[in-house]
Simulated scan of single mutants.
Amino acid sequence: MGFGDVVQRAIHKATVVPRLSAAATRAGLGPAGTVEVLRISQTALQAAATHGSGVPGRSNALRHFMWQAVLTARFGVEAAQSIAVAQEAGSPTRKDSGVDQHNNAAGQAYGAAHVGELTAGSPADAMAVLVPVALEMWESDELVWVRPH
């Protein structure tokens, strides 16, 4: 990986909050909804780091699945898809972005089918419900990853 790739990845990571905020606003979620999107994003990141570490690709797959499941349950599939597209915008790795899209779609389907479970309580409560589901989906290869080059 060259210096330009490193810089591009750093910029992509550093601009995630503005991208997600703008996407939530465009989706019509308002200030409270935008803050909730960021809370859900942070909670998914923490849950995935805690329960997905130790196996290459697992944390990323779990994060995208859980994040999109909760966003879909709470705001609807269109808003979740819009926010996911914003997250992937400018992604420095096309293969990784494709994997993320797959795992996002799995989360969206799950979130649409389990609204009641994922809207009761806090984002952390929703992640507690989703962690075992995500781990089971990972083990059955329903969630995917790309090997680093």
Score class of each variant (00 low, 15 high):
Ala32Thr: 11
Glu36Asp: 10
His12Phe: 13
Gly4Pro: 07
Gly57Ala: 09
Gly4Thr: 15
Ala105Lys: 05
Ala44Thr: 08
Leu62Val: 07
Ala106Gly: 01
Leu20Glu: 05
His12Val: 07
Val16Asn: 06
Val17Leu: 11
Ala106Tyr: 02
Ile40Arg: 00
Phe75Leu: 04
Gln8Glu: 13
His64Ile: 07
Phe65Asn: 09
Val35Met: 02
Thr93Met: 08
Ala44Ile: 08
Ala73Glu: 03
Val37Met: 02
Ala32Tyr: 05
Ser82Phe: 00
Gly52Gln: 04
Phe3Leu: 15
Ile11Tyr: 01
Gly54Pro: 07
Gln42Met: 12
Pro31Asp: 12
Phe3Thr: 08
Ala32Trp: 06
Ala105His: 08
Ser59Met: 14
Gly98Gln: 14
Pro56Thr: 15
Ala48Asn: 10
Ala89Asp: 10
Leu29Met: 01
His102Ala: 04
Arg19Tyr: 03
Phe65Cys: 07
Ala14Lys: 13
Thr50Val: 13
Ile83Glu: 00
Trp67Ala: 04
Ala79Glu: 07
Gln81His: 14
Ala89Lys: 13
Gly57Cys: 05
Gln81Trp: 10
Phe65Leu: 06
Gly33Tyr: 01
Thr34Cys: 10
Gln101Leu: 10
Ser82Arg: 09
Arg26Phe: 08
Val70Leu: 00
Leu29Glu: 06
Ala61Phe: 10
His51Ala: 12
Ala14Gly: 15
Ser59Cys: 05
His64Leu: 11
Arg9Val: 12
Ala48Pro: 07
Val99Leu: 03
Asn60Ile: 03
Ala80Arg: 00
Val85Glu: 08
Ala84Met: 04
Thr72Lys: 01
His51Glu: 11
Ala106Thr: 10
Asp96Gly: 08
Ser53Pro: 02
Ala47Cys: 04
Gly30Gln: 03
Val6Asp: 09
Ser53Arg: 14
Ala105Gln: 11
Ser59Arg: 12
Gly57Ile: 05
Asn60Asp: 15
Val35Glu: 13
Ala48Trp: 03
Val6Ala: 14
Leu29Ile: 04
Val37Asp: 04
Thr50His: 03
Leu38Arg: 03
Lys95Arg: 14
Arg74Ser: 01
Ser91Met: 05
Ser97Leu: 06
Leu20Met: 10
Gln87Phe: 12
Ala86Ser: 09
Val35Asp: 11
Glu88Asn: 12
Pro18Leu: 03
Asp100Leu: 01
Asp96Asn: 12
Gln8Tyr: 10
Gly30Cys: 01
Gln46Ala: 15
His102Cys: 04
Gln68Ala: 05
Thr15Phe: 07
Glu36Ala: 09
Trp67Leu: 12
Val77Gln: 13
Gln46Asn: 14
Gln81Arg: 15
Leu29Ala: 02
Val37Gly: 00
Ser59Ile: 06
Arg9Asp: 14
Met66His: 00
Pro18Gln: 05
Gln8Met: 13
Val6Tyr: 15
Val7Pro: 02
Phe65Ser: 08
Pro31Gln: 10
His51Trp: 13
Val85Cys: 00
Val77Ile: 09
Gln46Leu: 15
Thr93Phe: 09
Val6Leu: 15
